[in-house]
Design a protein around this nucleic acid. Sequence first.
DNA 1: AATAAAAGCTGACAAATATCATATTTTCTT
DNA 2: AAGAAAATATGATATTTGTCAGCTTTTATT
Lengths: 225, 225
Amino acid sequence: MSKCESCIVREFNSLKSLSREELMRVSACKTGKIFRKGQVIFEEGETLNGVYCVKDGVCKLTKLSENGKDQVVKLVVKGGLLGKRSLVTEQKTNLSAVALNDMEMCFIPKSEIMEDLNKNPKFTMDVLKTMAHDLKESDESLVNMAQKSVKRRMAEILMYIHDNFGTDDEGYLSIVISREDYASIVGTATESAIRILSQFKKEDIISTRGKQIKIEDYNALKWME
Amino acid sequence: MSKCESCIVREFNSLKSLSREELMRVSACKTGKIFRKGQVIFEEGETLNGVYCVKDGVCKLTKLSENGKDQVVKLVVKGGLLGKRSLVTEQKTNLSAVALNDMEMCFIPKSEIMEDLNKNPKFTMDVLKTMAHDLKESDESLVNMAQKSVKRRMAEILMYIHDNFGTDDEGYLSIVISREDYASIVGTATESAIRILSQFKKEDIISTRGKQIKIEDYNALKWME
DNA sequence: AATAAAAGCTGACAAATATCATATTTTCTT
DNA sequence: AAGAAAATATGATATTTGTCAGCTTTTATT
């Protein structure tokens, strides 16, 4: 397994604020973990004893609603850290994490990373900034949920995935998820999500190949009422 | 104006993690501000050059949606700090703050508080914990918006206000806001909010006196489908 | 106290979204 | 390659929520 000091993933997250010595210490006690598509990384209510650093693959963070449906709160890709909030508050996790495809992750035990959090102000500030960013994003999603139509929300999530996670060489969104997941992100019934995507297809705004989606007319999504 | 060192409000927020010396320094440069009901404290997109500490009164944090409607993201009462996120990220604020009744606040300039944020790890950790808590709350609201009916959301906001901000000696909710604000919290049309509150009245779940609302049957709200 | 303005209320109807039923296609398993 | 299982698709219908219009009550202003 590669060492943290030389891991490029680190460039994308708060670990970049750690010194070489700190990184070596973290590296020495981390464990590599592989999760298969669909596998649960952790579940709402669990006590996490560390954080996961995503090296490859995508996962969804979800929360179970009282109506029994899961709501996707966030998608996490390479460079993301899972379990930050629980680490900071020392509470059980309020979200579940499920792999959307095969994932490669590093697990860093709590004790190790807590030490850095308490002793390296640069690191603490960096985690704080990430959390502030997450909060802003969450507030924005809240407003979208409350004020926009399902169709509009679907258009926005397609653009979000396109802009943040990119496409493969043929132009298909590089994150491939089920219609059920789309429904769970947008906050609607699976049938409604399917219906809207079908409509987009009919209007040549997107095209599909199996689960894969390609945006054909970005502006149509952007300017959709 | 009273001094920060002896201000009880401090007990409710992150400032409690500051040392006596730090508090005296903060106190020396703070300015007291009064905002009248309906007055705008700051507006989305503004550059804040400090944080506000709420000594008395209530305000709403809102975000403007593209459809032109404001969405209430959070209610802030005594002890709350406004502008934390902007302080940490050094970005323009993403929310507006409007006083819901007459408010008494202290304004602490950015330069002063930033110094503490960079030098007092206990304070930084405390701000981090508050932010983590806000994030959790925001995620929960997101799920509620996405998965629950307007009626259910209204029931929950009534209970939330009851549980977190209490009632006066007659049992009326101590936070008194317009139906329009209720609509904006719940994320619905004003008429729909009014309709639902009227229905609750008919079913004797709540009673009203002008704008004031009293919860008569908490369990009915709790177990509402 | 009179008037104006704002907030609250209600009905009628339209639009958006959910639910249920059922077919079709894709993917997985053997 | 065949069959089973899961995912996708679509129609019919019910429910929820939004919009518009007009009316009543409360609050603010003179």
